[in-house]
Write a protein that binds this DNA or RNA. Structure first.
Ligand SMILES: [Mn+2]
Ligand SMILES: [Mn+2]
Ligand SMILES: [Mn+2]
Ligand SMILES: [Mn+2]
Lengths: 222, 222
DNA sequence: CTTTAAATTTAGCCTTGACTAAATTTATTT
DNA sequence: AAATAAATTTAGTCAAGGCTAAATTTAAAG
C-alpha cells in the first residue's frame, strides 16, 4: 500500500499541496515554475499521478490539479520530513534559518520513518519548524493555522508573527535583520492603498514594507 | 571539476573501491552481486565510467576494473560520508551498530559538504565509525590500516579487535553477543587446519569461530 | 588439442522523467 | 463574433540505468 514514491513524485505532491492550500487547484504553469520544470513535463507527470492506482491527484484537462486523500497523505509525509529536518539541523548542528532549506530539500526524500521518529522524539516533538511553519503530526494531520498574512492587517491592528513563508536565503536574512521572526510582536500604523505598503512598528523601529514582504509574514492578530 | 556524480555512479565507485582494496581488480560478476545488479548492467556502466572525462576507472575487457585517482577520490568521499553518518547516527540518535548501515547508505549520497563538516566537527573529528572502520580524512586520504583478519592468527597469538567488516544486521548482533566489538581483547588458543576454525578466548569465555566470522574480524596483534 | 563450463560482453528493449516544437483550448480584446 | 494572446496538451526525443537473451571470450578438463 505504501509503496515508495520517487523523489520527483514526492516533490510534485509537496508542491501541489502548497499551491492548493488556499483551496484553489494548482495550474500547470504555476506548478512548472515552482518545480523548475517545463509546463509540458508537468502535464505528463500530472496525467500519470491521476491515473495511478490509487490516484494521487484529481485532474481534468485545462482545470489544474488537486490532491486526493492518498496524495495529500504523501505530501504531508514529505512536508513533515522537511520541517522536522529543518528544526533538527538548526537545533543540533547550528544551521541558521537561511541555510536549512536546501539541505532539508534533499534529505526529506531519503530518511526512514525510524529516523523521522528519532529526531522528532529527540526534539520533544516540536510543533513548528525554524521559520515557524506548522509541522504535520505523526499521523499526518496538518494542525490548524490560526494566522493571517500581515498584508491583511490595517492601521491600529497588531499581532504576533507566527511564521514566515520563504525559502530564499537572502530574503530570510533580510527578515531577520528586520526582526521579522516568529514570536515578534508588531503593530500596523499605516496603510497606503495604492502600493499596498504597510507601516509597522516592531521593537522600537518603524518600517515600511511592500506587499512582497507583508504577504509572506503570517501573524496572529491580538 | 567536481561535478555531482549520480547516486548509481557513487555506489559503483564505492563498491569498486571495496573490491580493490586488496590490490586486485574488481570482476564484473563480483561487482554485479555486490551491487545487486546483473553483470550486463555492470559492463555497461563500467564502460561509461572508463570513457568519462576524466576517467573514473581503468578498464580492459575481461580484465575487471580498478579506480583511477579521480575515481578513488570520489569513492573516498562517499565512504567518508557513510562512516561519518554512521558515527553520527549512533552518537546523537541512539542507533545501534546494526541499524545504522541502511540509513547511512541512503544519506551518504545527499548530504552537502557543509553537513559533512558540521557532523565531523560536532563529533570532534572521529577516526573510526561504529564498526571500528577507519574514516577517510577530510582531504580524502584513507588512514593506514595496521590490522589483519583474525583468520590469519594462530594459537598463542593475541590481539585487539580493530573493526568488523559487516553490514548485515543479524551478523552484527551476533558479533555483539559474542563480545566481538572494537577494543575487545582476545587470544587464539587453537586452530583446526581442516575447517579453518579458530578457538579464541575472549573475556572469560572460550569460543570456536568459523572462517566466515574470523575473516570479518580485523585485529591488531599484540 | 578439444570440449565444456564459466565469465563477460553485445544487442535490443524498457521505464523515468526531462525537453522542444507543434497543435489545441481557453481567455481576452476589439 | 472574430482575432489575438495566454495557457495547456500532444507528439516525438533524449539520457540514465536497469533487464533479458544471444554472442563471445577465457578458463578448466579431458
Ligand atoms: Mn525535494
Ligand atoms: Mn521551513
Ligand atoms: Mn549507497
Ligand atoms: Mn560501518
Amino acid at each position: 500500500m505504501e509503496q515508495t514514491l520517487t523523489i520527483s513524485i514526492q516533490d510534485y505532491l509537496k508542491n501541489i499541496y502548497e499551491l492548493t492550500e488556499n483551496g484553489e487547484s494548482a495550474s500547470t504553469n504555476a506548478l512548472a515554475s515552482k518545480l523548475n520544470v517545463k509546463p509540458a513535463s508537468v502535464t505528463g507527470m500530472v496525467q500519470k499521478l491521476a491515473s495511478a492506482k490509487p490516484a494521487l491527484v484529481e485532474y481534468q484537462k485545462h482545470q489544474g490539479v488537486t490532491l486526493t486523500d492518498d496524495g495529500k497523505k504523501a505530501a504531508l509525509e514529505v512536508i513533515r520530513h522537511h520541517r522536522l529536518l529543518e528544526a533538527w539541523l538548526v537545533q543540533t548542528l547550528g544551521y541558521s534559518w537561511d541555510e536549512v532549506h536546501a539541505e532539508a530539500e534533499k534529505l526529506e526524500h531519503v530518511i526512514s520513518e525510524d529516523f523521522e521518529r528519532r529526531i522528532a522524539a529527540a526534539m520533544g516533538h516540536p510543533l513548528r519548524d525554524p521559520h515557524g511553519e506548522l509541522i504535520p503530526t505523526a499521523d499526518l494531520q496538518m494542525p490548524l493555522d490560526d494566522s493571517t498574512p500581515l498584508s491583511s492587517l490595517r492601521a491600529n491592528q497588531s499581532g504576533t508573527v507566527q511564521y514566515v513563508k520563504a525559502a530564499d536565503a537572502e530574503l530570510l536574512k533580510h527578515f531577520e535583520t528586520l526582526g521579522l521572526i516568529p514570536e515578534a510582536e508588531l503593530e500596523v500604523t499605516g496603510y497606503s492603498p495604492f502600493d499596498h505598503n504597510l507601516t509597522i512598528k516592531i521593537g522600537r523601529k518603524s518600517i515600511v514594507l511592500g506587499l512582497n514582504i507583508t504577504s509572506k509574514i503570517y501573524v496572529k492578530e491580538s
